[in-house]
Amino acid sequence: MKRFKPFTIALFVASLVFAPLFLNTYQVDVLNSIGLYTLLALSLNLILGEAGLFNMGHAAFYAIGAYTSAILNTRYQIPILWTLPLSGLIAGLFALVVARPVVHLRGDYLLIVTIGVGEIVRIALVNDVFGLTGGANGIFSISRPKLLGFTIRQPQEFHYLIWGFVALTIFLFIRLKQSRFGRALNYLREDEVAAEGIGIDTNYYKLAVFGLGAAWAGMAGTLFAAKMTIVSPESFSFWESVMLFMIVILGGAGSITGIVVAAFLVIGLPELFREFAGARMLVFGLVMMVMMVVRPQGLLPARSQQLSPTLLKESNR
């Protein structure tokens, strides 16, 4: 299957850069939502797509990042964007701690454990754990982010912040994919026993990728907190994890371009279907089903899946 031509990519980037000039605030805000979910789906893709670890509780890490930023900002007045690395760190560490004893579990058992972790985190947030999270109210009056002395307020301004971060993420993740680390993850996904056979420390790689994916989701959480200025448990329900899961699989697990396209569809379509009012989620469910049936490998499946393992090395360019 052919890749996107550089021209197509340039066109896509250009239309994103100039989008705020032509679109109204609502449309830009939809793009922002898509950007945020692209970011989250890319981070989940490391775990689910690249390493093949079934994770349906990604919202937990996203939540921890968002709450870390919110708490640091509202209690200690730390500018919200400065909390970015710390949110990533805490979400990543949390993932390491919870993944450590369970990461060896077989596919579906890991799936339910991650769902469980997601629910435990949500319940903890609702019950105001350690008196930090504000219970069901969540945390509000988070200050607006400042970048180089400029306060980011309008959706148009967030557009550049979010999509800039997406661009950086894509750049880094492509590098990661091509590295030793990325290749090891793919071996792990294709055949764990064989991977162990050629000397890959599977447990180390599984944990590392869990931590990294979670850290990235945590940073996406910071952006979410900055954009919404309020975080509350509703935003991190099981449903969010399900949507991210759908984006990654629909895009074609392991394929970055596929995930960007899928994020546009999964987040964009319900907005597009607003014309159907109460029936919009009905149509959305149907479309998800049909798309999966029509493109069972995902919209743009990663190339390595279609090659025999011996060719994997070349496929990674």
């Binding site: 689910l48 596919g107 699989i249 089903m289 798309m291 999966m292 049936v293 490998q297």
Partner: peptide, 16 residues
């Protein structure tokens, strides 16, 4: 197809 594709189809069916 890959197993997870059917899972997403199932989720779509559930929403529907």
């Amino acid at each position: 197809s890959p197993r997870l594709s059917a899972v997403v189809s199932a989720l779509g069916a559930s929403i529907f």
